[in-house]
């Protein structure tokens, strides 16, 4: 860990001020990913603004019937929150499928969204990595890439996004609220929060310097059934190889609404609206689910070691849809 100046402001205004005062400052909340990376010299912030004392730990109902989740609500508290369990079970399930009890007690909602990839090569300063060092090259392409992404990749980076929580939030159309150093607030979807790697894989997201995530807002709960299915190498305490968040609503034997998001396969929490649209108005069937999987995987690319994620995602998606629509595949 390279030495840093440290401050623990008491409120948002002071935190934003501190971040402006020392350009390049990074916010730290749970620290479960940032400190991990700092010890390895992968992250080297000169200034840390500890936002742990900020009043962002509430989960409240919005006037629209949704939920506003404070950025500092821990993953554990969010997963255990009665309203989340009742109305957004896919989110509770996704969080509980991730990390460990200890980590979930520390990791926060805002921090989880901004966690960085678990790519083996990103995690080792001795390996070339465009995400860590722009222009250095990508060691995962042509290397051991079992855990890497098959969707949203570029010639410069195939690192997968590791979050489970964010996958469920993407399926729920969550919006991320922020405050900028000038006090302005903004709200954006997860799609607008994240960036695809393209030619600049070192930039994970679109937050401005000093912009602070204050909350995640969930719209009113979707109709229908929800599920999060995670496939991993251990029974617990491992990152997703593939995960599927699905919310499906049926009426009179036909699918009326469907949202699907995927983890472990994309360079960001993945969603494919065309694939969702294929389901609408249709009666559930194995053939339909296969067509949906075709659409999700239309642009998927394997890199050798992760080729299996293509059939694995297909099978997991088809089985999830079959379960949610009540029919056996």
């Amino acid at each position: 860990m390279i030495a840093f100046d440290y401050i623990r402001p008491a409120d948002e205004t002071a935190a934003l001020h501190a971040a402006t005062e020392r350009p390049g400052a990074r916010f730290i909340a749970g620290g479960t990913n940032l400190l991990d990376l700092m010890k390895l010299g992968i992250e080297r912030p000169r200034y840390l603004v500890d936002i742990g004392a900020l009043d962002l730990r509430e989960v409240t109902e919005t006037s629209e019937g949704g939920l506003r989740i404070g950025a500092l609500v821990t993953n554990a508290a969010l997963a255990a929150h009665p309203l989340v369990r009742q109305r957004y079970p896919v989110l509770s399930q996704a969080i509980l499928a991730g990390a460990s009890g200890q980590l979930r007690n520390k990791a926060t909602t805002g921090g989880n969204l901004l966690q960085r990839t678990r790519c083996y090569f990103f995690y080792d300063p001795a390996s070339p990595c465009n995400k860590r060092e722009p222009g250095a090259g990508c060691s995962a392409i042509g290397g051991f890439n079992r855990i890497m992404a098959i969707l949203g990749t570029s010639a410069h980076c195939i690192a997968s996004h590791p979050s489970d929580m964010a996958v469920a939030m993407r399926a729920l159309d969550a919006r991320v609220e922020t405050r900028l150093p000038d006090g302005q607030t903004s709200s954006r979807t997860l799609e607008a929060l994240y960036r695809l790697p393209g030619e600049t894989p070192h930039v994970d997201h679109r937050l401005a310097p000093g912009e602070l995530i204050t909350a995640v807002v969930l719209p009113p709960p979707p109709a229908g059934r929800q599920s999060y299915r995670k496939v991993r190498d251990r029974a617990s305490y491992a990152f997703a190889l593939v995960s599927v968040a699905a919310v499906v609503s049926m009426r009179e034997g036909r699918i009326t609404e469907a949202t699907l998001a995927f983890g472990g396969v994309g360079t960001m929490p993945w969603r494919n609206r065309k694939a969702e649209a294929l389901l609408i108005g249709q009666a559930p069937s194995a053939a339909l689910f296969e067509r949906c999987a075709d659409a999700v995987l239309a642009e998927a690319t394997g890199h050798g070691g992760n080729d299996f994620k293509i059939p694995l995602l297909r099978r997991t998606l088809v089985a999830s849809l079959a379960k949610l629509t009540g029919g056996e595949p």
């Binding site: 440290y6 620290g31 460990s100 520390k106």
Partner: peptide, 26 residues
């Protein structure tokens, strides 16, 4: 030292955390 084994688990205000991934000053 990276939250991947749990040997450093302590209770902070009764809640278990990995003490390796937290700064003392916090």
């Amino acid at each position: 030292d990276h939250g991947q084994c749990g040997a450093c688990t302590v209770l902070v205000n009764g809640r278990r955390i990995n003490s390796c991934l937290s700064l003392a000053v916090m």
